[in-house]
């Protein structure tokens, strides 16, 4: 269902409530904001502020209790489960905390993973994967397994996997959380260059220094934008 909006991403009156036993936790509380195409935004907040829940909701992974997530005029949660899977494949590139690579697949295979459910032919997959692996500087290590790489290198593989399908939006959850300061800055610089190439980047972080790479920062506290 297409909805008229002036923004690439628009969050309308979004709420998310969790039930934990008898306790109800308000992770997102009536949030409204928008992100424009090709923006680089960081979402900052303390642990438990609701920023990761917000990211997964933005990524069509976590149905909100109420409100709307509009992406490219599309009401994401009006889509069926399988349509949302297709939406994620086409629109979203995820960079997870702790990299989350598939341990039994090589760097090359991990990068090609999102393309295994597309109609892209094997030869083209190889070309695209080779290109992004070169972009993140891991050509020499393309056929290694994840556990044969350093943390920074694994993060680069996760980024390569996120961008290989050329999704317009990249969502990153604490991408520098497990890295030393120098590597963290390299990764943020890489994300910045991807933004310059036209990707909309949304990074969840609690690190003030990392937000310097973004064009805008959304501060979250107790499930609200502050």
């Amino acid at each position: 269902m297409l909805i008229d909006t002036n923004h690439f991403i628009e969050i309308r009156n979004l709420s998310k409530q969790y039930e934990t036993g008898s306790l109800a936790v308000q992770a997102i509380d009536h949030m409204d904001f928008h992100i424009d195409d090709q923006e680089f935004v960081t979402i900052m907040g303390q642990s438990g502020s609701g920023k990761s829940t917000l990211l997964s909701t933005l990524g069509a992974l976590n149905r909100p209790s109420s409100g709307q997530v509009l992406v490219d005029s599309l009401d994401v949660y009006a889509l069926s489960t399988e349509q949302r899977a297709d939406f994620r494949s086409e629109y979203i590139g995820f960079i997870f905390q702790s990299f989350q690579l598939i341990p039994y697949l090589t760097v090359f295979e991990n990068v090609k993973l999102p393309m295994s459910v597309t109609r892209i032919k094997n030869q083209e997959q190889d070309r695209m994967a080779t290109e992004v692996i070169k972009r993140v500087g891991l050509t020499e290590k393309a056929f290694r397994l994840p556990d044969q790489l350093s943390g920074g290198e694994q993060e680069r593989v996760a980024i390569a996997r996120a961008i290989v399908n050329k999704p317009p939006i990249i969502l990153a959850d604490e991408p520098t959380g497990n890295l030393d300061s120098s590597t963290a800055h390299d990764i943020m610089a890489l994300l910045q260059s991807l933004n310059a190439d036209g990707h909309t980047i949304i990074v969840v972080t609690h690190n003030q220094q990392m937000s310097a790479y973004a064009k805008r920062t959304i501060h979250v506290s107790d499930g609200r934008c502050v």
């Binding site: 990524g59 992974l61 489960t81 399988e82 899977a85 297709d86 994620r88 494949s89 086409e90 979203i92 995820f94 997870f96 989350q100 598939i102 993973l113 999102p114 459910v117 996997r161 399908n165």
Partner: peptide, 9 residues
Amino acid sequence: IFRAIGFRK
């Protein structure tokens, strides 16, 4: 991870 990167059921 599979589901997040666009795998259908």
